[in-house]
């Protein structure tokens, strides 16, 4: 009997006031199940090669920012240090590496997309509002929370809400989502220099890279959260979008022969 595809979701490693726990956010798993896969968490570094052998694909979920040393950065604001998790960074990079070597499909969401990019040698924009401010010659706007479109500050925020994206015409994601779409947005960082073999598959109106795809491997990263429904006071309700998960599971079932 052919089993359903097993999709490993890297556990969210939490080591703060929550205690010494792994968190499995059910939204990701619900999308995987609705798309026809079996969602399972994974959290032990010693078993990483077994996970890559046993499972059919990997999802790296969202989470806090990674330590900038992963892409050659340094920390000058010591307040930032409390937010990093070396064990989570280690695990995400190691499990990405194992599935990448095995040639198995990988979907990165939010932080997960950033992990993919950095693991393949890319870098991150450390603070989107600051970058936009300096690049657009605007010195201050709305607590640096809001992005800029056509030189107008404050049109939308990457940190909270929804915004428009434009997809690259020859990207795999454009086949699912079309040339334009609205996505939710909950991030302060984004892909900067692309990692080896990666292409930008979507941009927001202010030029931030919103999705990446690998040229030859079944690897996709999206900066938004298709698993998460949210509300934006201007753009209405953004529903959970399982189409990306359906395409991902289909890709797994077809042995990635697109």
């Amino acid at each position: 009997m052919k089993r359903k595809p097993v999709i490993i979701i890297a556990a969210e490693d939490v080591n703060d006031s929550f205690g010494n726990v792994f968190i499995m956010n059910k939204e990701y798993a619900d999308c995987v199940r609705l798309a026809g896969g079996i969602p399972l968490g994974a959290g032990d570094y010693r078993a990483i090669s077994s996970y890559a052998e046993f499972a059919d694909a990997l999802i790296i979920p969202g989470g806090p920012v990674m330590h900038p040393a992963r892409y050659g950065g340094i920390v000058t604001n010591f307040m930032e240090l409390a937010g990093f998790s070396a064990t989570r960074d280690d695990f995400d990079f190691a499990i990405f590496d194992a599935f990448c070597r095995a040639g198995k499909p990988i979907l990165g969401i939010g932080r997960g997309a950033q992990v993919i990019n950095v693991a393949l040698g890319g870098t991150l924009v450390r603070d989107i509002p600051q970058r936009l401010t300096s690049e657009n010659d605007i010195t201050e706007h709305s607590n640096r929370e809001f992005a800029v479109v056509d030189g107008t500050p404050g049109d939308f925020s990457h940190h909270w809400g929804t915004h428009k994206i434009t997809l690259a015409p020859d990207s795999g994601l454009a086949k699912i989502m079309g040339r334009e779409s609205i996505v939710n947005s909950f991030h302060r960082q984004a892909v900067d220099k692309l990692g080896a073999g990666l292409t930008a598959a979507a941009f927001s109106e202010d030029g931030v890279i919103e999705a990446i795809e690998h040229d030859s491997l079944p690897i996709i990263g999206v900066q938004w959260h298709p698993e998460h429904a949210c509300e934006d006071f201007r753009r209405g309700v953004h529903e959970q979008d399982i189409t990306i998960f359906e395409s991902f599971v289909k890709m797994v079932q077809e042995g990635c022969n697109e």
């Binding site: 490993i8 929550f18 010494n20 726990v21 792994f22 968490g41 994974a42 032990d44 078993a47």
Partner: peptide, 24 residues
Amino acid sequence: SWGINKTYVQAIGAAGGAPVLCAD
């Protein structure tokens, strides 16, 4: 979400198993 204490996961990992976690 489901919360899983790491001690169980590490105990199985250290003992030669591949621990996986309930996700839904």
